[in-house]
Amino acid sequence: MRLNEVVYTDAMPIEGYGPGFFRVGGEVHQGAILTGPSGTHGWGGYDDLHRLSSLAGQIDVLFVGTGSEIAHVPAPFRATLEEQGIGLEVMSSPSAARTYNVLLSEGRRVALAMLAV
């Protein structure tokens, strides 16, 4: 079997998470986060559309982790992303982290917004 080293580009992978925190690229971040090509930042949740606007043209898909359980996202949040041409995939935060890491390792244009578990 041939093994290839995974090389991440500008964005950093999710390395771990726990109650109220995420570890991204060796740094621990408390609360909800937004991570992608422009780095990792705190995220104010579904009403924090300003940070998402900066992703237009940089990503094709935004994964949203809704905490420990999958939940619907508000319609205005979904509409804003659609207007910007950004695809949206909603899942639990653990699933979103795993999916994001896999697609990031493939060099895909993705970002991740996660609510804490």
Rank of each mutant, 00 (worst) to 15 (best):
V102P: 03
G65T: 06
G39P: 06
Y46N: 03
G107E: 04
Y46R: 03
L34I: 12
V24I: 15
E27S: 08
S38Q: 08
H29L: 07
L3M: 14
A71D: 12
L115W: 04
F21G: 06
G85V: 06
A79V: 12
Y100P: 04
G45L: 03
G87S: 13
S54E: 15
H72L: 11
I14E: 01
R108S: 11
S54P: 00
D60Q: 12
I33M: 04
D60Y: 01
S93D: 02
Y46W: 08
G57C: 04
D48S: 10
E69T: 15
G87K: 06
L62F: 13
P76S: 08
A111R: 09
S38M: 09
S53T: 15
D10Q: 15
V90K: 09
G18K: 05
P76M: 07
M114E: 01
G18L: 05
E27R: 14
G42Q: 14
G16M: 03
V61C: 09
L34F: 11
T80Y: 09
M114T: 13
A116C: 02
A75R: 10
E15T: 05
A96H: 00
A113I: 11
M91Q: 10
Y17M: 15
N4P: 03
N4V: 12
G18P: 05
G45P: 03
V28K: 13
E83L: 00
V61T: 15
V90P: 07
H50E: 15
E5R: 14
A79T: 11
A113W: 02
I33P: 02
A79C: 00
E83S: 14
D48T: 05
V24K: 10
A113H: 07
S105K: 07
S68L: 09
G67F: 00
N4S: 13
G26P: 07
S53Q: 12
Y8N: 07
D47N: 12
R98D: 06
Y17L: 15
